[in-house]
């Protein structure tokens, strides 16, 4: 039916990224393959290498794994810098994330096998425990990153945050005018709803999207049984639209919170981990 004009696709494809793969699938799961291979090598060599009296962090094998693990942790923590540093040379943050995820998971094996399964109540095990905390919080991150974006997108319904808030403001202005002819108690309920800071709530409310003290909902309840009164009907319909708008914003905040909350564990724990690792390494060499 037709012919396409000649275009230099190879050239443009290099500048674009039409791969359209998620960070998990990046380059055909390249980093999953590398991480799996790494873990296999560690597990298999663990049984092949004979360390007397038993595997421990202080053997040459333990030192090797420990060094790999330490360097890996330092490199993995650099993702935070890479993400914020826009250099001119080519790099793919998606590639970095992919490597971060899979190599980070490989640390479970590298770190644990480095201990020789000797855990106790000391600074060494503290480092291991912090590492596991970082990895587990990261695992949560992987899960929410793959599950929640759809919900975030569906809930937005093509609106930006700004438009959502503007929508709410517009409803508020209409409510203020519409509530003028109402009785004292009804208009009081509306005023309370309008005066309340609808988004001020604790961590739980933010993460669950449930706001039990929502004055708009209470105001709506106050309008039960006012059917037939034209002014009251108008305010009720405005209130329920306000309620719906609030819920959309709160859901948006909830998804964003769920997508970000783990970083509040992941990042501080990483910093603690690096501190504990320093203590671990220094003490090991000090008491050599």
């Amino acid at each position: 039916m037709a012919s396409l004009p000649k275009a230099n696709f190879a050239f443009h494809e290099r500048r674009r990224d039409t791969d359209h793969e998620s960070f998990l699938a990046h380059k055909g799961f390249r980093w999953l393959k590398i991480a799996t291979a790494l873990m296999l090598v560690v597990v298999v060599s663990y049984f092949l290498v004979d360390v007397e009296p038993r595997h421990n962090g202080g053997s040459w094998y333990g030192y090797t794994l420990g060094t790999i693990g330490l360097l890996l942790i330092l490199w993995l923590s650099l993702l935070g810098v890479r993400k914020r540093k826009m250099t001119e040379k080519y790099f793919s943050l998606k590639g970095w994330t992919s490597a971060h995820v899979y190599l980070g998971l490989a640390l479970i094996v590298i770190g644990t096998w480095h201990t020789g399964f000797q855990l106790g109540w000391n600074v060494h095990t503290l480092a291991w425990a912090l590492m596991m905390l970082v990895i587990l919080s990261g695992l949560y991150g992987i899960v929410v990153y793959s599950v929640l974006p759809r919900s975030l997108s569906n809930n937005r319904r093509e609106m930006t945050r700004e438009q959502m808030v503007e929508g709410l403001d517009a409803l508020d202005r209409q409510l203020e005018t519409a509530a003028q002819p109402l009785d004292r108690d009804l208009s009081d309920a509306v005023i309370t709803a309008l005066d309340q800071d609808a988004f001020k709530a604790g961590v739980i409310a933010r993460l669950t999207g449930r706001y039990p003290r929502c004055a708009t909902r209470k105001a709506l309840r106050a309008f039960d049984g006012t059917g037939g009164n034209e002014a009251a009907d108008k305010v009720r319909s405005l209130l329920s639209r306000r309620q719906a708008q609030l819920e959309q914003i709160r859901r948006h905040m909830k998804y964003k919170a769920l997508l970000e909350v783990w970083l509040f564990v992941h990042i501080p724990a990483t910093i603690l981990l690096i501190a504990a690792l320093t203590a671990h390494v220094v003490s090991v060499f000090y008491y050599w």
Binding site: D17, D19, H20, E21, S22, F23, H26, K83, K94, P149
Partner: peptide
Amino acid sequence: RACPTGAAIRVA
């Protein structure tokens, strides 16, 4: 380049 999850793509 800066998209961490691969959501941003440029296409012809």
